[in-house]
C-alpha cells in the first residue's frame, strides 16, 4: 500500500513505472471498497485524461460477495491502476481491463488478488493495444493462502503491438500455498494477423478501418459481461482513433 517515500524501480510493483510522472502524484490516496457478505457490486473506471493519473484500489470482498471491476486505461499520459482484492469465502471477483497507449506513454495495471478463504473465484482479463514507443505493463499476482482450498483463479493477458517500437510487459504470477486449487494463466503478446487484415481490405475496408474492426473485437474481450460493456467498448474505440 501507499507509503510516503516515492517507490524506486527496485520495488517489484513499480519496476516499469514512469517514476518522474508518478512523483507529483505521490503519495497516492488509497480508494477503499468493501463489499458486504453476499452483496454484489460493480465499478467501471475510465481513465482518458491528458494528465498523468495513478490510482490505488483496495477491495475487500466478504464471504459470498461479488465484485465486477472494469478499467479502461486510455489517457494520454502516464496511467497506472493498482488493485488489491482480498477475497473471503466463496467470493467472486471479476476484473476486465483494456489499456490503449501510443507516443512514449507508460501504462500499467498492477493487481494482487488474495484468496484468503476457500472456494473464491477470480477472473482477470487484460487486453493492451500499444503503438508508437508506448510501454504497457501488466503485473498480476494471484495469492492463494494456506487452507484456501477450492480456489479458482484465472488470468488471461494479451497485448497487441501496433509497431515494433512498442513494448509490452506481462507477468502473471501464482503464489499458491493450498492444495486442491484451480489456477490458470494465459499470456500472449502479438501483432494483428496480417492475413485477417488483408482479408478485410480485400472486401473494401481501408487499412485503418480494418485494424479498428479487429482491435475492437480484441478489446471487447475485456468488457464481456460487464454491466456497461457497450459504453466501455465505445469509449475504448474512441481511444483507438488516436492510435491508428
Amino acid at each position: 500500500m501507499a507509503s510516503l517515500a516515492l517507490p524506486t524501480r527496485k520495488d517489484e510493483a513499480y519496476r516499469y513505472a514512469d517514476l518522474a510522472a508518478l512523483a507529483p502524484l505521490w503519495p497516492l490516496a488509497v480508494q477503499e471498497i468493501r463489499v458486504a457478505a453476499g452483496a454484489t457490486d460493480a465499478l467501471a473506471i475510465t481513465a482518458r485524461s491528458d494528465a498523468a493519473e495513478a490510482r490505488e484500489l483496495l477491495i475487500t470482498l466478504e464471504d459470498g460477495a461479488s465484485f465486477d471491476l472494469r478499467v479502461l486505461n486510455a489517457g494520454h499520459a502516464y496511467g497506472r491502476i493498482a488493485v488489491t482484492a482480498v477475497l473471503g469465502r466463496g467470493a467472486s471477483f471479476h476484473f476486465g481491463a483494456a489499456q490503449l497507449g501510443g507516443g512514449t506513454q507508460t501504462l500499467e495495471i498492477v493487481t494482487e488478488v488474495r484468496h484468503l478463504q476457500p472456494d473464491a473465484v477470480s477472473r482477470q482479463v487484460v487486453r493492451s493495444v500499444l503503438g508508437g514507443q508506448a510501454t504497457g505493463t501488466y503485473l498480476g499476482k494471484v495469492h492463494v493462502a494456506r487452507g484456501a482450498i477450492g480456489t479458482d483463479g484465472e488470468q488471461s493477458i494479451r497485448a497487441m503491438l501496433l509497431n515494433r517500437t512498442a513494448t509490452a510487459n506481462a507477468r502473471p504470477e501464482l503464489e499458491i500455498y493450498a492444495d486442491d486449487v484451480k489456477c490458470a494463466h494465459g499470456c500472449a503478446v502479438g501483432e494483428l494477423d496480417p492475413q485477417g487484415l488483408f482479408y478485410l481490405q480485400s472486401r473494401g475496408l481501408p487499412p485503418a478501418e480494418a485494424k479498428k474492426l479487429m482491435l475492437h473485437a480484441f478489446i471487447a474481450e475485456a468488457f464481456v459481461g460487464a454491466p456497461d460493456s457497450e459504453a466501455l467498448t465505445e469509449a475504448a474505440l474512441a481511444g483507438l482513433e488516436n492510435l491508428l
Binding site: D193, L200, G204, H216, A217
Partner: peptide, 28 residues
C-alpha cells in the same frame, strides 16, 4: 491498394477463407 481494388469492383474468393475472431460477418 487492396481496398481500392475492391472498390473498383474486384472480388477475390479465397481458396482458404480467413477466420477473424470477434468480428461479425454482418458488421464487417
Amino acid at each position: 491498394e487492396p481496398h481500392e481494388r475492391a472498390a473498383t469492383g474486384l472480388f477475390l474468393g479465397f481458396q482458404y477463407p480467413v477466420e477473424i475472431p470477434g468480428v461479425s460477418n454482418l458488421q464487417f
